[in-house]
Amino acid sequence: MIIFCITQDTQRHPLLPELKSGGFQVMGKISSQCSLSGHISGELAVETSAVPIHSIDIQLFCVDCILPGEKIATETSLIQTTQIADGDVCRKLTIPIYVILPRLLTCPTTFAGPFSIEFKVAIVISFQSELSKLQNCIRRLTPEL
């Protein structure tokens, strides 16, 4: 199991000002190894969040790497997204993680000379904000074909 802590300080991408000033903290643990017939398991808890949460998703990625000469070519593909929470969750409530692997899209992690196939898991937390509410209003006002 891998123990993780997600805060506004651990993020490498830009955050909205309301997230930077208010802060959030999500803690948990997730399995780092599983069999193809098994599942990814773990748990997480939203310790604090100044902004209401919209959803929490677990994303499974396939990372293909090849070493042609002295360069490394890497391609990352999204395999599956599983939503584990919808709406603003209760603080400090343990949310179970249980993701079944798609059998046709996964294989064992492989390292064969200059070629490798690995799988990575990402935890995606979407927050409700005034900006997202504004975008939803704009989408509703835009006529659909």
Rank of each mutant, 00 (worst) to 15 (best):
Q33W: 01
Q135G: 14
S41K: 06
S77M: 01
V89H: 05
S126Y: 09
Q83T: 13
T82F: 03
L104H: 13
F24H: 00
K29M: 11
K120D: 09
A112N: 14
I30V: 12
L134N: 12
Q135L: 12
A85H: 13
T110W: 00
I66L: 00
L67C: 09
K133N: 13
C107Y: 05
P143G: 07
Q33S: 03
D57F: 00
S49L: 00
H39I: 12
F127K: 02
A50E: 02
Y98D: 11
L15D: 15
M1F: 05
R140Y: 11
L131C: 15
Y98S: 11
G113D: 09
V124A: 06
I138P: 06
T110E: 08
A45Y: 03
T48L: 05
T106W: 05
L93R: 14
L131K: 15
L93C: 14
P52H: 02
G38N: 06
T81V: 07
I95M: 08
L78Q: 10
T76D: 02
I100G: 05
E130H: 08
S32W: 01
P96C: 08
G87P: 15
P108G: 00
E47Q: 14
T142Y: 00
K71H: 13
L60H: 04
F111H: 09
I117C: 03
D57K: 03
L44F: 07
I138S: 03
L134I: 08
L145W: 13
T10N: 08
T81I: 07
A45T: 09
T10Y: 04
G22F: 00
E43Q: 15
T76A: 05
I79L: 11
F119D: 10
L105Y: 07
S21D: 15
G28S: 06
F127V: 05
I123H: 02
G28I: 06
Q135A: 06
P96K: 07
L60A: 00
L104D: 13
L93A: 11
S31E: 05
V63N: 12
P143M: 06
G38T: 11
S37E: 08
G23E: 02
A122L: 05
H39T: 15
S41W: 08
C62G: 09
L134Q: 12
V89D: 09
E75P: 02
F24G: 00
F115R: 10
I30W: 02
T142R: 05
L19A: 06
N136G: 14
P17K: 14
A73H: 02
I56P: 08
G87F: 01
T48I: 04
P14Y: 04
F24C: 00
G28V: 10
A122G: 08
A50Y: 03
G22V: 01
C90E: 14
I66M: 00
V46M: 12
Q25H: 03
E18V: 11
C34Q: 01
G23Q: 00
I100L: 04
Q128A: 02
L101H: 10
I97P: 07
L93I: 14
L44Q: 12
L141G: 14
F115M: 12
V26Q: 06
A85N: 10
I3W: 12
L36R: 04
T7I: 07
R91K: 11
T106R: 10
A73P: 04
G28F: 02
E118C: 03
C90V: 15
V51Q: 09
L19C: 11
I30M: 11
L15V: 14
L104G: 11
F119W: 10
F24P: 01
P96M: 06
L104N: 10
